[in-house]
Design a protein around this nucleic acid. Structure first.
Length: 734
DNA sequence: AGCACGCCGACT
DNA sequence: GTCGGCGTGCTC
């Protein structure tokens, strides 16, 4: 018997703007939409997604191949996720097959079955529990294993052990001693349900916010939850989730990339007995798959993850929370450039559930939507507990003598705070020792040979490193052009500040938190723990330190370099600066001690700085909104940015010029095309970069224009090494 | 994206 | 004579 609809439309991973038709193998009666299939494509075998079943193909029957294999009897992309992917593919004008690929865990993309694997775990036996690690001081590997399992009494999987560089050999040695034994189970061991932490008592504001959210459970409603730092947003999330779970619904929580520390997750796990699935980029493929499966099967009630977790299938989704919604890491910056925050709104609408965008420093876009009543604006204006808001002080750097980037008044305040036994946090958004190496005789500077950028000097190990492409050089002993042996390190970065502070305050521990000091897995947690134990009085950090951490003993925050954000060419730089200063400032005085924030600047009269410190972030933000309105920038206009790069000076410009010429006849006077112009950093990683900015007053105009333009661009083929890409709703121009 | 086809330059 | 450069076009 032949089917009436014998053709499947298949989306394949690759830069294809159309689906491909395949014939159905009659032995398989049902091909669900959203299931994976294996097909022969050219001379390769690929895994694609069933998009539709149709009766006719525009190609002749003989030109079609048959599906090789059906991999799923239930759709791997549930109808809601399938629709979300289609929406995203349309909106971001990105090939559907690649969107599907981004939405699925790697192992599923490679054809793995969506089943929990039986995994072998190891744990200590009764006699193993009695052993002391000391006795193994001569057998380092065995000792390491013993310590690991002592720290994890529920057991660890072989995969996890391998990640800690424990070999089979070591495992067998301890197994032979009968100190450890193994067991098999299908899922990650859920930590033995701990003593449940009790919900905190909410203040009136928090109660009002909580009921606004929970009253809307079951309907689509977007919220902006604008809560000053320390106002107890997380507690509101937790209680909203509790109510959501009580109604038999599940919750999805998205968190910025770097704030997904074990502490964050622990806060959820300690509150709920419900299973929590965690999805983030630090996990291996197997762990991600397992968490994804638990979510899809409804075995996890709370799903916490970074950007890509927005695509996790969750039955009975009842609440979405985007924490720190202003954070740039919710926007993917390469390939499929989606915004997880914006997709969360779309997903909540489809799921008919509330979505909460929480932050102390709303993005201008979100603030705009709240002002226009598209989002319900909730506010938390009081600090929880007895904490007081910090006071701001500007330190005018003009005519000040700086010592390693520190002004005399700031040094004095640091000293005073330390004498009182408080902790001090110094923020400098630049890692390394110094941002520039200079020859004072001839003016030579250490430049990256692949980028339009200076090399950053690093100490211990001593290297010149380009922060844009990773290029590394030995530090030259003499100036490369005049042989002068005295090269000068100019400017301050975290390492240098650390060194200087250790000299000034030799009796105090200094801790530095940046990408270099936290490179190893778990080292950020170690450092944070040291801070909480009060072992360090002086904390130095980049923006890693600014986000979400709670340091109750910090009374003084120093912000050393504000001015770069004040005069950047990028349209979002001032927004970022305001968010960063407010977030860093929020680290001060979260305990019972009053916090003080000192901002060093050469522009103490700058109106934006003045607005920020005297009237706070909301006033500051509305001031920038005015500027955006005048400059016709988002959120008042919609942007799409074509980027191009090539190893030659001309080709990138040429391809953008072709795109412009293709697009100009279609604009209908509704779309303005600006450029092409070189990117702010024209050369980066051996490539010359250009951009073409496209702007429309209304979203549908821009969308329709892009829909007409993109099919034409397949014929506007670049020469071999030129690459171009489209960024809808760019968040910066770099 | 890959991969073959094909059309021109400098080599054994 | 051919080896190989990469522009072009196709994959159901």
């Amino acid at each position: 018997m032949t089917h009436t609809a014998p053709i499947l439309k298949i989306a394949l991973p690759g830069p294809f703007r159309q689906t491909f038709d395949y014939l159905i193998n009659d032995l398989e009666p049902d091909y669900p939409i959203g299931a994976r299939v294996q097909v022969s494509f050219g001379r390769k075998t690929l895994i694609g997604i069933v998009c539709a079943r149709v009766g006719k193909s525009s190609l002749k029957r003989e030109q079609l191949k048959a599906i090789q294999k059906l991999l799923d009897h239930k759709p791997i992309l549930t109808p809601d996720i399938f629709k979300l992917c289609n929406w995203a593919s349309d909106y971001y004008h990105h090939p559907l097959g690649e969107v599907f690929a981004a939405a699925l865990p790697t192992l599923l993309r490679q054809g793995e079955a969506p089943e929990l694997r039986q995994t072998r775990f190891w744990k200590l036996t009764a006699s193993g529990l009695l052993q002391e690690a000391k006795t193994l001081s001569s057998a380092r590997r065995q000792q390491a294993l013993l310590l690991l399992l002592q720290a994890n009494p529920a057991g660890l999987s072989e995969d996890t052990l391998r990640e800690h560089e424990i070999t089979r050999q070591t495992i067998h040695t301890l197994a032979n001693k009968q100190w450890i034994n193994s067991f098999e189970t299908t899922c990650l061991p859920t930590p033995a349900s701990r003593a449940e932490e009790k919900p905190l008592t909410l203040n009136l504001e928090q109660q009002q916010v909580l009921s606004a959210i929970t009253e809307s459970l079951g309907t689509f409603k977007p919220f902006l939850l604008e809560g000053i730092t320390g106002s107890g947003k997380t507690e509101v999330y937790l209680q909203a989730i509790a109510l959501c779970l009580q109604q038999g619904l599940r919750a999805l929580v998205l968190i910025p990339e770097i704030s997904l520390t074990p502490q964050t997750v622990d806060r959820f796990k300690q509150r709920f007995n419900n299973a929590t699935a965690v999805l983030h980029s630090g996990m291996n493929d197997r762990e991600r798959l397992e968490a994804w499966i638990m979510a899809k099967n409804g075995e996890a009630d709370i799903i916490i993850g970074t950007r890509s977790a927005i695509f996790t299938p969750i039955p009975n989704l009842g609440l979405i929370i985007i924490d720190e919604e202003h954070d740039a890491s919710f926007k993917q910056q390469d390939g499929f450039r989606y915004s997880a925050r914006d997709l969360a709104i779309v997903r909540a609408q489809a799921a008919a559930c509330p979505v909460v965008l929480g932050t102390a420093t709303p993005s201008l876009t979100t603030l705009f939507n709240a002002d226009r009543r598209r989002y319900h604006h909730l506010a938390l204006t009081q600090r929880a507990g007895h904490a007081l808001p910090p006071s701001y002080h500007l330190i005018d750097l003009r005519r000040q003598k700086l010592q390693h980037g520190l002004s005399e008044p700031l040094l004095h305040e640091i000293q005073q705070a330390l004498i009182r036994g408080h902790q001090v946090l110094l923020f400098i958004n630049r890692r390394g020792y110094a941002p520039l190496l200079l020859c004072h005789v001839c003016g030579w500077t250490g430049r990256c040979e692949h980028c339009d950028a200076n090399l950053t000097l690093h100490q211990a190990p001593t290297y010149l490193i380009c922060h844009h492409c990773g290029h590394t050089e030995r530090v030259p002993a003499h100036c490369a052009s005049c042989q002068n042996p005295h090269l000068v390190a100019v400017g301050i970065a975290t390492e240098r500040l650390e060194q200087a502070l250790k000299e000034y305050f030799p009796d105090n521990d200094v801790i530095r938190i940046d990408r270099d000091s936290t490179r190893r897995k778990g080292s950020l947690d170690n450092l944070l723990q040291k801070i909480h134990q009060g072992k360090s009085q002086i904390l130095i950090g980049t923006q890693m330190l600014a986000k979400g951490h709670h340091f109750p003993r910090v009374s003084l925050v120093g912000i050393l370099d504000t001015d770069s954000g004040l005069f950047s060419s990028d349209f979002s730089a001032s927004e970022r600066l305001g968010q960063l200063i407010t977030q860093v400032a929020g680290r001060a005085g979260r305990g019972s001690i009053k916090g003080n924030v000192y901002i060093q600047t050469y522009h103490p009269d700058h109106p934006l700085l003045q607005a920020l410190i005297h009237y706070g972030y909301p006033t500051f933000a509305r001031q920038i909104l005015e500027e955006r309105l005048v400059a016709q920038l988002p959120p008042f206009n919609c942007l799409a940015l074509f980027r191009a790069e090539s190893p030659t000076l001309e080709q990138g410009m040429e391809i953008l010029e072709k795109i412009k010429q293709a697009g100009l006849p279609l604009t209908d006077n509704a779309v303005q095309i600006l450029g092409p112009i070189p990117a702010p950093m024209q050369k980066r990683a051996k490539n010359y970069r250009y951009q073409l900015l496209c702007r429309a007053a209304h979203r549908p105009q821009l969308q329709q224009w892009l829909s007409k333009l993109l099919p034409l661009l397949q014929h506007v083929k670049p020469s071999k090494q030129v690459k171009w890409s489209l960024d809808v709703d760019p968040i910066d121009m770099f």
